[in-house]
Design a protein around this nucleic acid. Structure first.
Lengths: 139, 139
DNA sequence: CTACGATCTAGAGCGAGGTCTAGATCAAGT
DNA sequence: ACTTGATCTAGACCTCGCTCTAGATCGTAG
């Protein structure tokens, strides 16, 4: 494993396709230090991403999708970049986020049930609508 | 019920406390036409909200919390303001939103499981940590 | 060699959703 | 009457998270 044979790398466009991030966003993330290591470049200056860059970005996407602010993601990246020794803090960060996600899911489920109820009210109204009756939900 | 006896009304501050919106946000929502009817004023020009204003705002809060854009909320408000006759469109709007919420919940649950897995990885690592071993998750 | 598309940098711009400020007015307690 | 705190308006400003632009360069297919 220490002897490599032409480590396959990806262009920014390919990484964009694989992560769902735009090429703009990828360059932006890099500027914001959201990548663990520096991205390699070709002799001509084009970025070449490794498989583990892509994996990391996929984790980032999950964390972002679930509402982690870029600032927290940056902090997490820093910790990973610093290497072993700070796992407790990484754990804290992730676990705190997990709790926020749980709260978020719960809040959404409450919203969902309120909305579903409203939907039912309207659906029911429309079902018996043909009979024709005045009905003002503002009342 | 048609004869009223001093309909109790609330100040903007009281409404803020009851809805969780800031007084700034309440004024902003009003400017953006997110309220069904015009808000009453005292002789001195202060806003007085009715109980149904508050109910409406509470629905708005749920819809916003669950990610409905202000533009959609505005559209929904318009429909309600126009009165009976457009229930089908209201239903479509709400049901579309409900589907988005469902999708959101599902996405969050996937994120949650990815995060929970990462949390476990770190927790486990820390548990067997005292034994002391190199461990670099970047590898 | 020529085209043409993908990528480069630095930095400006944008949309959403409020938030805040200034300066004035109102209302209630003492 | 005076003080204090809540509210008023109009409009400037802010954060977040990208997105887009301009103008140059790279690299690959003909």
């Amino acid at each position: 494993m220490t002897t490599e044979a032409a480590a396959p790398s990806l262009s920014i466009g390919e990484v964009a396709a694989r992560t769902g991030l735009s090429v703009h966003a990828l360059r932006f993330y890099e500027r914001e230090s959201l990548l663990v290591g520096p991205v390699r470049r070709t002799s001509g200056g084009r970025r070449r991403y490794t498989a583990s860059d892509v994996e990391w970005l996929q984790i980032c996407v999950r964390l972002r999708e679930s509402g982690m602010p870029l600032a927290d993601l940056k902090r997490f990246t820093e910790l990973v970049r610093q290497g072993p020794g700070n796992e407790a803090e990484r754990l804290r960060l992730l676990d705190t986020h997990r709790q926020r996600v749980d709260a978020q899911i719960q809040a959404l489920e409450e919203c969902r049930s309120v909305i579903a109820w409203k939907v039912d009210v309207y659906a029911e109204h429309l079902a018996r609508d043909e009979a024709g009756g005045l009905w003002d939900p503002t009342a």
